[in-house]
Lab assay of single mutants.
Amino acid sequence: MSGNGNAAATAEENSPKMRVIRVGTRKSQLARIQTDSVVATLKASYPGLQFEIIAMSTTGDKILDTALSKIGEKSLFTKELEHALEKNEVDLVVHSLKDLPTVLPPGFTIGAICKRENPHDAVVFHPKFVGKTLETLPEKSVVGTSSLRRAAQLQRKFPHLEFRSIRGNLNTRLRKLDEQQEFSAIILATAGLQRMGWHNRVGQILHPEECMYAVGQGALGVEVRAKDQDILDLVGVLHDPETLLRCIAERAFLRHLEGGCSVPVAVHTAMKDGQLYLTGGVWSLDGSDSIQETMQATIHVPAQHEDGPEDDPQLVGITARNIPRGPQLAAQNLGISLANLLLSKGAKNILDVARQLNDAH
């Protein structure tokens, strides 16, 4: 009898209710805020589980004197976190989706994509230029951005401005803007500013005609071990179906173009009346040469937790077992079709030249 009692006690200790789920994140304040929001949602869904947040620095956090596009290494903000995932030191990792490459290392998958916040870019102005827009900034004003995508589009749109690289986390960039006289304004992701509670610093939100956004911008991705079915089931509740389908289309477009950090590629997606609209573009580094096109596809946005595919093969690095396969494939095909259209119009040449120029500098 006593033996059975011990077995029952052991089973209770090993039951999922007692389990601590370890969540990996970057150390920056924004990353911690984003991770806290994901953990809060998981806690609400699984009140019996405990969650421990483990923060670590990544290569991208450490190399702050070089433009991201020049470092010449993929997975700048993800490699150390993936290493911890691989060694079973954490069970899942919360990322900004735009930091996750469209091809993940073997053994990993994006197990959830959370509801997207505003994906557009924002302009934050130096205190002396508050009330201005990019259009009304004085001639030769210097605007800071760490992104080739932003610089290429904005140089084309605002030729009277000069664009220079600015690195560091959000706090560091804002301090550089406010305390030094080098920059009249800087460009940042609206979602990051909003998550930090800095709505009052948003001086201008850039519309798609001015600057399309990065693939996955404004959404959070939760990376897990691809074979860890328990954790895949656990994080599945975080999937937002519309965000998922938009981001599958965007990531398929980028992957098929073979774009990345070192080339200016941008997108804009919208879901309306059962249609998914995808606009994508590529630019030369100075913005003088560009190709942009829009395509659409009829896609039914499923309700969360309709029964999805059981075999769960990944699409552009994403596993969404609780979302039907048909809409996911339709979104992926839309991204591939748009990429093929741009490639047929000469996108590869623009991107190759951009890559060579970026590598040469």
Rank of each mutant, 00 (worst) to 15 (best):
T78Q: 10
L81G: 08
K74N: 13
I291G: 07
L170A: 07
K128F: 07
A112D: 02
E162V: 14
E306D: 07
S146R: 11
N340V: 04
P106C: 14
K62W: 07
D352N: 06
P101V: 09
S284V: 01
K140F: 10
R325I: 15
I186A: 11
L343D: 14
T319K: 05
L193N: 06
E89L: 10
E52M: 03
H120M: 12
F77T: 02
Q328V: 05
H199E: 10
W198E: 13
E210I: 15
N358D: 00
T190P: 06
E73F: 06
F108V: 07
D233E: 12
R116W: 04
D307R: 06
T298L: 06
L254Y: 00
F125H: 03
S337W: 00
A122S: 09
V38I: 15
L134Y: 00
I186H: 08
P208Y: 14
I166L: 11
R195Q: 04
E242K: 10
V39F: 07
G317M: 15
V124K: 05
I205F: 09
Q153V: 06
G287F: 04
T243E: 05
R255M: 13
E139V: 08
K132W: 13
G48R: 12
T133V: 09
L174T: 07
H300K: 14
G72S: 13
L49C: 00
K43S: 10
S344Q: 07
G281W: 10
L85D: 02
L68A: 12
R175C: 11
K70I: 13
V353M: 15
I231Q: 00
L97V: 12
K43Y: 08
E117A: 07
G192N: 02
D311T: 06
L100W: 05
L64G: 14
G259R: 06
V202P: 15
V267N: 15
G236V: 04
S284W: 05
V142K: 11
H256Q: 05
V38W: 01
Q296R: 13
A303D: 15
I54T: 09
D233P: 05
S96T: 01
D121G: 04
A330H: 03
L276T: 01
L49I: 06
A266L: 03
H239D: 14
L85P: 01
H126G: 11
G236F: 02
R167H: 07
L234G: 04
S57G: 09
S45I: 15
L97K: 04
R149L: 02
V237G: 05
L351A: 00
K62Q: 15
G111T: 03
E258A: 05
L170D: 01
E306H: 12
L315W: 10
V282P: 01
H160N: 11
T109E: 02
D230M: 15
T78K: 12
A270T: 07
Q153H: 03
W198V: 10
D178Y: 13
N349D: 12
A122P: 03
A266G: 04
K140H: 08
C261Y: 07
L42I: 09
Q217F: 03
H83D: 12
E223R: 02
V130S: 04
V90E: 05
R164E: 14
Q229D: 13
G111E: 03
P101D: 01
R164H: 14
Q332C: 03
Y213K: 02
H120I: 06
Q217G: 01
E117I: 15
V237W: 02
K74Q: 15
H268K: 09
G308A: 11
A330G: 04
R195E: 04
S344M: 06
V353S: 11
N171Y: 14
G236D: 15
G287L: 05
T243Q: 15
S165Y: 10
A226P: 07
D178N: 09
H83L: 14
P264Q: 09
I248L: 10
A331P: 02
R150F: 00
P101Q: 08
W198L: 12
A339P: 00
G168K: 02
D65K: 14
K128Q: 05
K128C: 09
A297R: 01
G197Y: 06
G259N: 00
D178V: 11
Q356H: 13
L68F: 06
L193T: 06
S146Y: 06
G281M: 01
L244N: 05
V142H: 10
H199M: 13
V263G: 00
Q181T: 13
A152E: 05
E139W: 15
H199T: 06
L234R: 08
Q356M: 00
T279F: 09
V38M: 07
K345T: 15
D230I: 15
L42Q: 00
G203W: 14
L100I: 14
P127A: 11
T190F: 01
P241L: 01
L148Y: 02
P106L: 12
P241Y: 01
E223N: 11
G326E: 14
E310I: 03
R246G: 10
I318K: 15
A266C: 02
D273E: 11
L193W: 00
L137M: 12
A67S: 05
I186F: 08
A297D: 07
K176M: 12
P264Y: 02
V235K: 01
S284Q: 15
E89N: 13
L343E: 07
R255K: 06
T133Y: 08
L81V: 08
K272G: 02
F158S: 08
G260S: 00
L285A: 13
Q204W: 03
W198Q: 07
L97H: 00
L341D: 15
M271F: 13
T58V: 08
E210C: 15
A331N: 00
K140G: 11
V301I: 13
T145L: 07
L234W: 11
C114Q: 12
F125C: 01
T298V: 12
E258M: 02
G107C: 12
L100D: 02
G281R: 09
G197Q: 01
P101A: 12
N322C: 15
I113M: 02
A303T: 12
F125P: 12
P324T: 14
K70F: 10
V123D: 03
E117P: 00
A339G: 15
L104R: 07
A55S: 12
Y277C: 08
K128N: 13
P313T: 08
K176I: 12
G107Y: 01
V224H: 00
I187W: 03
S69T: 09
R246N: 08
A339V: 11
E52K: 05
S37V: 08
P101W: 01
L244H: 03
P138T: 10
G192C: 11
Q229P: 07
H207S: 12
S284L: 01
R355M: 15
Q217K: 05
Q275A: 00
D61Y: 02
L341I: 00
Q314V: 11
I110F: 04
S262V: 09
A249N: 01
W198R: 08
C211A: 11
T136W: 14
F158V: 07
K132C: 11
V301M: 05
H160E: 12
D230H: 00
T102S: 13
T243L: 00
T190H: 15
N200V: 07
M212P: 02
S75Q: 09
K272S: 13
L174H: 08
G203L: 01
L177I: 07
A297W: 12
K348M: 05
E310N: 00
A266I: 04
E162L: 12
L174M: 14
T172D: 02
A189K: 05
V267P: 03
D359R: 15
G197P: 05
K272Y: 02
V130Y: 14
I205N: 10
G260R: 02
R164Q: 08
H83W: 14
V94R: 00
L49G: 12
Q296M: 02
A226I: 07
Q304K: 14
D99R: 03
S37F: 11
F253T: 04
S147P: 00
L342S: 08
P119G: 05
L206V: 07
E80N: 06
N169I: 07
K62Y: 12
P106V: 14
T41H: 12
L285N: 15
A44M: 04
D273S: 04
A266V: 15
L193A: 00
D61L: 13
I231R: 04
Y277P: 02
Q314H: 10
S146W: 11
G260A: 05
Q304D: 01
R201K: 09
S262W: 00
G280T: 01
G317L: 03
V130E: 15
F51L: 11
S184G: 09
L206H: 00
S75N: 14
D230P: 11
D121C: 10
I113N: 01
D359H: 13
Q180V: 09
R164T: 12
T58K: 01
V94H: 07
L315C: 15
D289G: 07
T269Q: 01
S146T: 08
A191K: 05
D99T: 01
D91P: 05
F183S: 10
L338G: 02
L341A: 01
P302V: 14
Q292R: 09
G308F: 00
A330C: 15
L245C: 11
K98D: 00
T145E: 00
N171M: 11
